[in-house]
Computed example of a mutant assay.
Amino acid sequence: MASCFPCLSARKKEVPRSAPANPHTSSVPGTVARTFSFEELAAATRNFSDACRIVGREDGLYKGFLKSINQVVAIKLQHAVDPSGSSEQDNGEFLALALMMSGLRHPNIVNLIGFCADGHHRILVHEYMPFGSLEDHLHGSSPGKAPLDWNTRMNIAAGVARGLEYMHDKGVLYRCVKSSNILLGEGYHPKLSQYGLAEHDQLSAPAAITGGTWGTMAPETVMTGKLFPGSSVYGFGVVLLEMITGRRATDSPQDVEDRHLVTWARTMLKDRSQFRRMADPALQGRYPSLDLQEALEVASVCIHKDHATRPPIGTVVTALSRLAYDVDPPESSHHAAPN
């Protein structure tokens, strides 16, 4: 199927690769991260109460309102420095992480607003994404919530690919591309959470993996514990399959062979007559047949077993730009996720 990938260039409904950001969620180039005191962040979260906890994402993640900047934010408790340890080294590593994050400014990456290195506390402050994660909308069970339509799914996919392309161009690795790390703002504008960044940022030195999700991690990462540029392309391919099929990356169906989305998809992708069966039933057939075929072709080359054979993320961006319309869905058709 990889041979079919170049044929995507024949499509006419192309949008610019550097599509403008949603006005409600755009980044401000050159923004410098602020410093916050622990007392200010504690006050914003009612002393980090359970009522302010953002459920279902990262541990230690809270929603708070910062009066000093008049903004609702997401506050991430990184860790408390061990007083008996090398606090100078810990502080240096944390500040280096904050500096790297603050330098990532793109419409499809969640902005770091500031940080706290007050005493033993190490806390990151990001912009708050009101519509929750892509996982919430694909696999959540909130009553009355309409499923994401085809156009919205393709817009999200194209935006995520642009964010990954920007990171690769900056020499930054993304540790775990998965639907829970893709956050949604107004108009379902997607942004990659910075909590999925790898511990090391240079593509020239593959980074050891300390965490991830089975089903979304590339084979080479599972086998060697290393991360390569093609590894995030694989993770993106799994997420694209999730959006197309409505299936989780790893599920627990009665048929063991269907448990892993990639294993199931590779079997189905061998026969184009099966493509319609792969579409999410929640879409109720409301998608262009040719677009479904092309989206599956993109996903197919992204999940190739050999990371060197997968396309560069820039090639994926070009292909998906022909499937995305960048039209915000009607607000009445979806509902914001809680928290």
Rank of each mutant, 00 (worst) to 15 (best):
A2L: 02
C7P: 02
A10D: 03
E14F: 10
P16L: 10
G30N: 07
T31N: 04
V32Q: 10
L41G: 04
L41A: 06
A42E: 13
R46A: 05
F48N: 00
C52M: 10
G56Q: 08
R57G: 07
L61T: 11
Y62W: 11
I69S: 01
Q71V: 01
V73P: 01
V73D: 01
A74F: 14
A74M: 10
K76V: 13
K76R: 15
H79S: 10
V81H: 00
E88K: 02
E88W: 00
Q89N: 07
E93W: 12
F94T: 01
L99E: 07
M101C: 03
G103T: 10
H106W: 04
I109C: 00
V110T: 10
V110M: 01
F115Y: 15
C116I: 13
C116S: 07
D118K: 04
R122T: 11
E127R: 07
P130M: 11
E135K: 10
H137W: 12
L138F: 04
G140S: 06
G144K: 13
P147V: 15
A158R: 03
A158F: 09
G159V: 09
A161D: 09
G163Y: 05
L164S: 05
L164Q: 07
D169V: 12
D169F: 12
K170L: 10
G171N: 11
Y174I: 09
R175H: 04
S179T: 11
L184D: 04
G187D: 04
L192K: 12
S193A: 05
G196Q: 08
A198S: 06
E199Q: 12
A205M: 11
P206D: 09
T210I: 08
T213I: 15
W214A: 04
W214Y: 08
T216M: 01
M217S: 05
M217G: 05
V222R: 07
V222W: 14
F228G: 00
F228S: 04
F228Q: 08
G230M: 14
G230R: 14
G235E: 03
L240Q: 03
E242R: 00
P253W: 15
Q254T: 15
V256C: 01
D258Y: 12
D258R: 13
D258A: 07
R259C: 00
T263F: 09
R266Q: 08
L269N: 07
R272W: 13
F275R: 12
R276H: 03
R276N: 02
R277C: 06
M278T: 08
Q284F: 03
G285H: 08
D291S: 14
D291V: 15
D291W: 14
L292E: 06
Q293M: 09
V301E: 09
H304S: 06
A308E: 15
P311H: 12
V316T: 01
V317P: 06
S321R: 05
R322G: 03
R322M: 08
R322Y: 11
A324F: 05
D326T: 14
V327E: 13
N339C: 09
